[in-house]
Write a protein that binds this DNA or RNA. Structure first.
Lengths: 335, 335
DNA sequence: AAAATGACCTAAAAGGTTTTCGGAAACGTA
DNA sequence: TACGTTTCCGAAAACCTTTTAGGTCATTTT
């Protein structure tokens, strides 16, 4: 009556069904020759004992743990989560488990995590960065495949997935051109960020395509904050009072810029169209008006990285930096 | 010369050191009697082969995986992450690993995750909710201890850790009273949320303590958005034009309320002091002015939950709902 | 009737580690 | 020399599952 303290093993099942261990295993896994009646008995016994095969024993034997390590350097949140969800989707639901480690930007801690993950015999590793700046490779001498997401590896022989920021920013500009804007400025984060450089490159490229100058004559680098967005509004408006659109390097910057621009009497989007970046919904849908913004499709990126890790575990890896397309989300901040 | 394809086992180490497997194991783990010279030889062999004990085999034998499952129902982010970090801290760095599962609010998926986590023989489970509303217990008949964080279990025999929202909101009001505010309103989320009720109760309690009425006569329930904060600003100002402070149920509401109040000519904090809730830094430090807000200490909560899980794994559980203190972060939105 | 086939099942090995128990030296004591 | 003690080490069991290589029996073929 009382549920067994020790979980049931296949030995218990076999005993209850009156067969050998081997037969029980084959019946449960649908392998080998086993009579229908026998199979039924085994299943019934397993049911009765609520038997759950011990994944450790199985893994020890097969050499496959069906577990991947997810190594993040940021505090997981912003980029780690979409990768996690994507990874869960990529392998059939619950097939694969994810061991999560946060190195908190400390490479000693990272090394330590790598060691314990390997001791647990994970089948593969996904390394998620906190920015798109290239990071040192960890793949040297590792016995399992590694895929880098968001932050690419410095080693071109590794497999990396990053958002195509150049194209994302270019899409934003093309959209603004389409709706008739001609004096377009660009406000973004610190110049030393790859993301800031890429997005600036995309803006520049698309402006050249359209034969337009950059309003204010140059990209405005700053920090990734709302505060800088507010400051930048003044700079932009002073440099070119006729400016009719701004592409921002992040939704935070855009939110600040919109707020400050409205206070200075510019209507958004009528006088000034504004585009953000990240589609961070808590910001981009709550500003007034809601922001047109570039979505980096992080869930798709995460899922793709996971799928690729799966492929790499089968020995089918395609090295290099893969740039994943972004998509423009059009809301009311651009007509 | 070439590094071995197959990772080294203790058998390899023992062979290289010229001892038996048992001796090698004892030497490496510092157990049993083994001569210093022998121990040295074993360690050297292990080093040379960069031996890393197979955690699967060890777990299979000892019955301890040093792994816990973290089961979230929201999309991990907002509440799951602090708990994860706290959990990592609670067990010595890297001692314990965390298997992360997101049920995405689907109880079928949750059941499935529980099964696979048990099959992997996790030592314990932490269940993280997305609101403080009580949730169904999963502890019935589980062979491992379970601790609930943020959302308590409906079963009072389970162990739950939740923020003390009543006291958190009361702290906010007491602070406002201290700085001389006398007409205090409360704007919060949907009434059916436990969090909204608790915070409203805390505000009411503290107002009664101070012998003050609630500005507007009643709590304003709405939704947890910035948009509602903006609407609520008008309601509050119309209901009591002399209102001098508002306690908000979330930073999002507070951000919207501050923005709208300023547009209607009220200076914050001179004319109207505003307190948020959550200390969601991306919002609370970036508004103008930065928000005084209630921090739920989620990392402490997570760490405590993890420590308690550790205790429960040793059979020392203290059932019940534990309310963890919040702390008021004072910034410029209150004088 | 003997041999071959096929259907169904089982014993045993393998995977890597820890632990228990006993054995073998080396040494001191009577 | 015989015996007890201490110190160190090794054989083997245990954890639980999957798979391989046979083995047994009934049925069909020659």
């Amino acid at each position: 009556m009382a549920p067994p303290q020790r979980p049931a093993t296949i030995t218990d099942v076999a005993a209850l069904a009156g067969v050998s261990i081997a037969t029980a295993s084959k019946a449960l896994n649908g392998r080998g020759q086993v009579r229908a009646e026998t199979r039924r008995r085994v299943f019934q016994a397993a049911e009765e004992l609520s038997f759950q095969p011990n994944a450790l024993a199985r893994s020890l034997l097969t050499g496959q743990t069906r577990t991947m390590g997810l190594l993040t350097s940021d505090s997981v949140g912003r980029f780690g989560i979409p990768v996690l969800l994507g990874a869960e989707d990529a392998f059939g639901a619950g097939e694969m488990a994810v061991l999560l480690c946060d190195a908190r930007g400390d490479s000693i801690r990272e090394q330590h995590h790598i060691r314990t993950l390997l001791a647990r015999r994970v089948d593969g590793l996904i390394v998620v960065g906190e920015s798109t700046d290239p990071r040192p490779s960890i793949s040297r001498d590792l016995p399992v495949p590694v895929v880098y997401a968001y932050a690419p590896s410095e080693d071109p022989d590794d497999v990396s997935f990053v958002p195509d920021d150049v194209d994302g920013a270019a899409q934003a500009v093309r959209h603004l051109v389409t709706i008739g804007r001609r004096r377009i400025a660009h406000v973004t984060g610190p110049q030393h960020y790859q993301a800031a450089q890429d997005r600036a490159a995309g803006v520049t490229l698309a402006l050249e395509e359209a034969g337009l100058p950059m309003s204010g004559g140059q990209v405005l680098y700053g920090v990734w904050s709302q505060r800088w967005g507010r400051q930048a509004a003044e700079v932009v408006l002073r440099a070119d009072p006729e400016v009719d659109a701004v592409v921002c390097g992040s939704d935070q910057i855009a939110a600040g810029l919109v707020e400050a621009a409205r206070e200075r009497g510019r209507r958004v989007p009528e006088d000034l169209a504004v585009v953000g970046y990240d589609n961070w919904e808590v910001l981009s849908t709550e500003t007034r008006p809601p922001l047109t913004t570039v979505d980096m499709n992080l869930e798709v990126l995460g899922r793709t990285a996971a799928q690729h890790l799966f492929a790499a575990m089968d020995g089918r890896a395609t090295p290099g930096v893969h740039r994943m397309p972004c998509r423009l989300i059009i809301r009311e901040s651009t007509v």
